[in-house]
């Protein structure tokens, strides 16, 4: 096999798979019509309707707002608490057992409690999203802060930095690679919690939109909503990776150097 055919064959296979799947779907939708098998054209129409006009404001934007707000709260709270826990060693044994319990509560289970205390509001949904996704960030930040090289802390002390400055200028940047790995996990959990909170307790947003259309047997719209949620997840993940690549450019070079030294 030549190098050329090696690169082209997989693409051909993949294109073939996609075309075959679309063709089978299309064929099945025409010859074996069923509620759950709407024509692809109608799914595409539903998808486009979500991007503008009334549905943009009643489905897409509310979901995005809750998702981003909950996610940002989780990242900020998780990083701050995690870095504090990782750098103030004495704190850990006091807090750790409680956290270890809280983080294994399936986040759906606290939704009814949040509903009771906060009502069917956006604060409630943001709280549930943040509660679900805060723990990966928190644990990763704790881990990262604990592994900061003690020499760097000495340099900071000799430079006369206060404790707060030291956390901000030394521990945070040093823990950032670890924090980012937690943030990636948190994003996918936040998306799940956004959907759940809207399926169970909302009157707008994408979760509500797909559930209502399911009840109305508007299957094409259900699929369109699911696709839109997938699109949001994909775009946010790619954005996060791009930010990470930029912010952590130093880390890749540094890690490469450390590995070269070891090897």
């Amino acid at each position: 096999m030549t190098a050329r055919s090696l690169t082209i064959t997989p693409l051909a296979w993949q294109a073939g798979t996609i075309v075959a799947l679309v063709a089978i779907w299309h064929w099945a939708a025409i010859f074996h019509p069923a509620v759950y098998l709407p024509p692809i054209q109608r799914v595409a129409d539903g998808y486009i309707r979500l991007c503008h006009g009334e549905l943009l404001f009643s489905a897409l934007l509310p979901s995005l707002y809750r998702l981003l707000a909950g996610f940002v709260v989780a990242v900020v709270v998780g990083s701050v608490v995690g870095i504090a826990m990782g750098s103030l060693r004495g704190l850990d044994p006091w807090v750790r057992p409680t956290l270890e319990y809280l983080r294994f509560i399936p986040a759906v289970a606290i939704l009814p409690a949040a509903l009771l205390l906060l009502g069917p509001t956006d604060q409630m949904r943001i709280f549930v999203i943040a509660f679900g996704s805060v723990f990966p960030v928190l644990l990763a930040a704790t881990d990262g802060a604990r592994r900061v090289d003690p020499t760097l802390i000495d340099v900071a002390r000799v430079s006369g930095l206060s404790t707060i400055e030291r956390l901000w200028r030394v521990v945070l940047p040093a823990a950032l690679p670890s924090v980012f790995s937690g943030v990636r996990v948190a994003l996918s959990i936040a998306l799940v919690m956004m959907v759940i909170s809207e399926l169970i307790a909302a009157d707008d947003g994408l979760g509500f939109y797909i559930l209502r259309n399911q009840r109305l047997f508007q299957t094409a719209n259900v699929y369109a909503g699911v696709l839109m949620i997938g699109t949001i997840g994909l775009i946010l993940t790619l954005t996060l990776l791009a930010v990470e690549k930029r912010v952590l450019a130093w880390h890749r070079g540094w890690r490469g150097l450390m590995e070269a030294n070891r090897g």
Partner: peptide, 20 residues
């Protein structure tokens, strides 16, 4: 392509589809 397509979709969003 199929896996990469399904991956970003949170499974809970498919509950309504499964209900159908």
């Amino acid at each position: 392509p199929l896996l990469e397509f399904l991956r970003p979709i949170p499974s809970v969003a498919l509950i309504p589809v499964a209900l159908l």
